[in-house]
């Protein structure tokens, strides 16, 4: 049971919350408002700010969304945070990723049959989220050798930051996983 109320779409009275919900339904791509945003509706300004950050990080930029979702899954697995792990595995499946790849992504990353560039990006993101001090210049150089520019590397770090925050928040309030 979530420690914050889950305010459903048809219960919203605040105009800012309604506007954010409408945007989430239109832009997220799944036609729903996930519980994480519904739990933030008790504070419309923070809801709006968090949605904007999520949108800028996950729905725009040059790193494919599937790659960013995979970074999120890897980080959530490392943090043992069930909400984002489940929601984003579902998201990846909806984006067309094979179940078998997703299983190995969680259970045995090294054996995961992904192209080397994707694996390098996911490893980098995981390190940025869990052990940022261990990131070295060589790690940056490696990504640049694989064709990524600094803007794209920043997208990876921003994604790592977003999921760290999401894990911390959803665990703190014991957020229920959406009925997907």
């Amino acid at each position: 049971m979530s420690r914050f109320p889950i305010i459903e779409v048809d219960e919203v009275v605040d105009s800012k919350v309604k506007a954010v919900y409408d945007e989430i339904i239109a832009e997220l791509g799944f036609g729903i408002v996930p519980n994480i945003f519904k739990s933030m509706a008790i504070h419309p300004d923070l809801l709006e700010a968090n949605w904007k950050k999520f949108k800028a990080t996950m729905l725009t930029g040059f790193i494919p969304r599937t790659v960013k979702e995979m970074i999120g899954v890897a980080i959530s697995q490392a943090n043992n945070s069930q909400y984002a792990l489940n929601v984003h595995l579902h998201g990846l499946s909806a984006l067309g990723m094979s179940e078998a790849v997703l299983q190995t992504l969680v259970s045995d990353f090294d054996a995961c049959p992904l192209p080397e560039r994707e694996k390098a990006v996911i490893r980098f993101g995981l390190l940025a989220a869990t052990k940022p001090l261990e990131l070295s210049t060589a790690d940056f150089d490696n990504l640049q050798t694989l064709g990524l520019n600094l803007g794209e590397i920043y997208e990876i770090i921003a994604t790592a930051n977003l999921f760290t925050e999401v894990n911390q928040y959803t665990d703190a309030i014991a957020l229920e996983i959406d009925a997907l």
Binding site: P64, R65, L95, G96, M97, S98, P113, P115
Partner: peptide, 18 residues
């Protein structure tokens, strides 16, 4: 072959995104 086929799924998802 299975691994190759599975790896294709991430590339196909990326095509859709582009």
């Amino acid at each position: 072959l299975l691994a190759e086929a599975q790896a294709l799924s991430s590339r196909i998802a990326a095509v859709n995104e582009i």
